[in-house]
Design a protein around this nucleic acid. Structure first.
Ligand SMILES: [Zn+2]
Ligand SMILES: [Zn+2]
Ligand SMILES: [Zn+2]
Ligand SMILES: [Zn+2]
Lengths: 532, 532
DNA sequence: ATAGGTTCAAGTAGTTCA
DNA sequence: TGAACTACTTGAACCTAT
């Protein structure tokens, strides 16, 4: 005889006498098909993050339930209202018990047609909830001396007599038979018995005749309907995945800063702030300003002296206005060019000061310091410029009145592409509202870019950058309690690269025209591009 | 067929004959939506941190319910008013019961047209409040011998025939079906029956077909509307939380003073009282008084000699009146100035005496003692002055007759801002009615301010202040049995700071004019401000 | 007392991988 | 194959406001 996973053999006689409808007996409750809303409106469970600081143990475990049942059953039996169904069931129940006790599994061979299958203990008993028998009904003595032992004797696999782990597909079975039945049904397997379809299945031989094993599975009441269809499985998988994502998002715990990280960030941040000065009077040339000697009059003001810039700002403003008035827009204006490059030079010096205050930077080989500075300087310049960006006016500022708008840059000789990119960069960065620590970290991370040309100790730079990035992540997560902020900040690094190269290209043009006006430091940071 | 938590399938045939409006029958009164406040707009369901601070052991209620029921039943049965509705219902009930017992689910097919649906016991009957049938209608004998047994036979879950625990979402159901229905609705679940949508639901198999279980839930009248929306839940949680806080506040136990704290407070308080003398005759100059030598005639009277001030007070009063008479208001009067500063000097000496009697103060480095005194003295002065404040007259007093009103201060050379702040300070402080212990503690706490300039051992001062604050808290809580008093007292500290700096500013002006009149000690406590 | 919501151990699907 | 795992549903026992 052939045994097919799909066959209905023996399914019929097991129907309850009084149950005319085909009543599914297995627990399908886990089979959660879909939550209506695609959003995370509800968790699938009844979640809600509630804190329970009650010190009492909440649940008296398991035993309580058992005892309640053994109490409630008899009373129900006496109750007139319970007569019909309940008495019947308690009969059936007793029958099951007595059968189960001594001679557990001949029932399949001997009894099948003489006793309705309802009494098979391996089927889920219809009325008693945890189908395990109440403790009192266990023969006798087994629990009288040792009350603490777990009575798992009733948990026997209906198929192979191995220890059962619970109800699976509507029958009490072991893990093995559970898996076997699922695989058989899912893959629509068909087995053939090599013997005479009468193999008795035991724990040790259950693997030897799949046909008889499957037959026994169905005999004891395992149900095909309880195996999820591929569709259901797919749906469940999708759901589980989305739940996982949701949970990962929710359960995320912000990273904490270590002490070392705090110190590092602190060092970098204060170095950054200290080199955030405005230029002193006379360093930046306007249109008619006379060129001053590059060596003389270092523009580095002391960190605390940034208060008396007002006169200077007045001057700059006057000059800038002057230039603007005399220049038709959309044309490169030499005065503008000089103005911009002077600002750049001043800022570059500040940036060098900043870098020199980073200990891990100073630990690098001098050649690498120079290399990193040469290429990173412009990027830091971009970052620092953001402090002066006015989000509403979409322009960089110098003091309260001077604006560097899109036109200013174009007149300063920069390309449209660069200018638009540059202003968009500032717009986006401003929207993020980075604090000083984040600004300085970002600058430092940009500085420690291991892919710059000609590094002596590339690995070291890379390690430093990694460490800095970790600092920034911990900082952003712990101070803002937001998860994605770090990633967003880091996404500005590639943009800085783009800007850098655009700037270099655009600047090459400027240098061709105004080479002699541009200070050497600026030239060094902005190498000439051949094909510009 | 698919079963959705939202579907109304099969709701129609069960509509009450007389209930034309689709009016939810479930009791929604518990749904206390505190106010229409738009503030409680929390994102989604899983938010909300609820604190369960119930320390009581959780078990015991169940039995109580039982006994109460068995008492109330008979009386209901005999009550004439109960007849009509109840009897009718009990009839219907029996019919349904017998139907349910054997052949559970034909009821849908057979009964609907023969029996008005009003009699379905699983729906909440609109007329009779507890829909349970009177116990008398139960056949017989069940209650004759055992009066303590509960007659719960009428409580049968309309979905699965399990024992019902009451009405849930408008139908008599068990806990399981209650939870199942809530989860299904809340998560907008959609189930599919693996069979033919005709599964009969019983206690034992209810888990096996969610689709049919949910269908039955809706059939017997469970209502989606009765499930709270996430918003409502959030509001309820907020309410519960605020109630808990309220309760916790009510249960608050006042802090107790330790012995050490008592000793410390006692020391400080007696030191404070001992230095609370009124000035002796001749120490305070009025308008025409001749200046006395600063060295000679120490103003420090012995603590016990504060009784013979009456003559002096007479004098002061005469002088003060004299001054007031001769001075147009709103103008600085030199005599007033001298008068005020002399009072100040005397008080400062008293304060120094007070501080020197505080052991923990004397343990400090001498430099720190001086530093704390220099800055704290004025603040203590303000506090002590409160003893002379007359809440009704809104003026400081010297004895029963001399008043220092707002005008007096202005004439004494103080600014309007300072004067108004100062008087408001006294008004508020007086309203609190601090006792001597509190006054002295507040003074001491003001004294031990670690943020004063140039402290040698800042940490020590801070620790002392903390200890003192704890003392004051314990004292205030234990003696007044009020929780917020301590916080209110402490809130005067920042006000003292403000007053201090306002005073210094105002006093600088005075010093410019009347420098030579002001005694050196006063000058020291009130440093000159440059930009005054 | 009633009837909402919440909690969490127990139960039972599917999945993984030696 | 099946022991060990994850994940989700259940429901008794709770909590709370009305
Ligand atoms: Zn097995
Ligand atoms: Zn075989
Ligand atoms: Zn139920
Ligand atoms: Zn079904």
């Amino acid at each position: 005889m052939m045994m097919t996973a799909g066959s209905l053999v023996n399914a019929e006689p097991f129907k309850h006498a009084h149950t005319t409808t085909s009543e599914p007996l297995c627990d399908m409750s886990y089979r959660f098909i879909s939550s209506g809303s695609p959003l995370f409106r509800h968790s699938s469970s009844e979640a809600g993050n509630e804190v329970n600081d009650n010190n009492q143990p909440r649940h008296k475990p398991a035993l309580k339930r058992k005892s309640e049942e053994s109490i409630s059953d008899p009373s129900l039996a006496f109750h007139p209202a319970a007569r019909g169904g309940f008495i019947l069931n308690s009969f059936a129940y007793d029958a099951i018990q007595s059968m189960h006790r001594g001679q557990s599994n001949q029932s399949h061979d001997i009894v099948p047609n003489t006793l309705p299958k309802i009494s098979d203990p391996h089927r889920r008993s219809p009325e008693t909830q945890p189908t395990r028998p109440p403790s009192g009904s266990v023969p006798h003595g087994s629990r009288s001396f040792f009350d603490n032992d777990e009575d798992d004797s009733w948990k026997v696999c209906g198929v192979c007599n191995d220890k059962a782990t619970g109800y699976h597909f509507n029958a009490l079975t072991c893990e093995g038979c559970k898996g076997f039945f699922r695989r058989s049904v899912k893959n629509s397997k068909t087995f053939t018995c090599t013997y005479n379809n009468q193999c008795s299945i035991t724990k040790s031989n259950r693997r030897q005749c799949q046909a008889c094993r499957l037959r026994k599975c169905i005999q004891i009441g395992m149900k095909r309907e309880c195996i999820m269809s591929p569709d259901e499985i797919q749906m469940k998988k999708t759901l589980v995945l989305s739940n996982r994502i949701k949970r990962a998002t929710m359960q995320w715990v912000p990273m904490e800063l270590t002490n070392d990280q705090k110190i590092l960030l602190d060092t970098i941040c204060s170095a950054f702030i200290q080199s955030n000065n405005l230029p002193e009077k006379g360093v930046i040339r306007g249109g008619e300003e006379v060129r001053q000697d590059a060596d003389k009059g270092s523009p580095c003001s002391s960190p605390s002296s940034s208060s008396n810039n007002s006169n200077f700002l007045e001057l700059i403003k006057r000059i800038a206005n002057d230039i603007a008035a005399r220049t038709p827009s959309n044309m490169t204006n030499p005065a503008h060019v000089v103005h911009f490059t002077d600002i750049m030079e001043f800022s570059i010096k500040e940036i060098i000061k900043f870098c020199k205050k980073i200990p891990t930077f100073m630990d690098l080989d001098l050649k690498d310091q120079i290399a990193l500075l040469k290429s990173g300087c412009t990027e830091i310049l971009f970052i620092k410029a953001n402090y002066t960006y006015d989000l509403e006016k979409k322009a960089l500022t110098l003091g309260p009145d001077i604006l560097y708008t899109r036109d200013s840059f174009l007149q300063g000789g920069m390309s449209v592409e660069y200018t638009d990119n540059y202003l968009k960069f500032h717009e986006d960065l401003s929207a993020l509202q980075l604090d000083d620590v984040e600004m300085s970290s970002l600058s430092a991370i940009a500085l420690f870019s291991a892919d710059r040309a000609d590094l002596v100790d590339q690995q070291r730079v890379e390690n430093q950058q990694e460490a800095l990035a970790l600092c920034l992540q911990a900082y952003s997560e712990s101070s803002w309690k937001v998860r994605n902020r770090f990633a967003i900040i880091m996404s500005f690094l590639p943009r800085l690269r783009t800007l850098n190269s655009l700037c270099t290209t655009a600047f090459s043009q400027v240098k061709k025209q105004f080479g002699e006006e541009i200070r050497p430091l600026v030239k060094e940071v902005q190498p000439t591009v051949e094909n510009a």
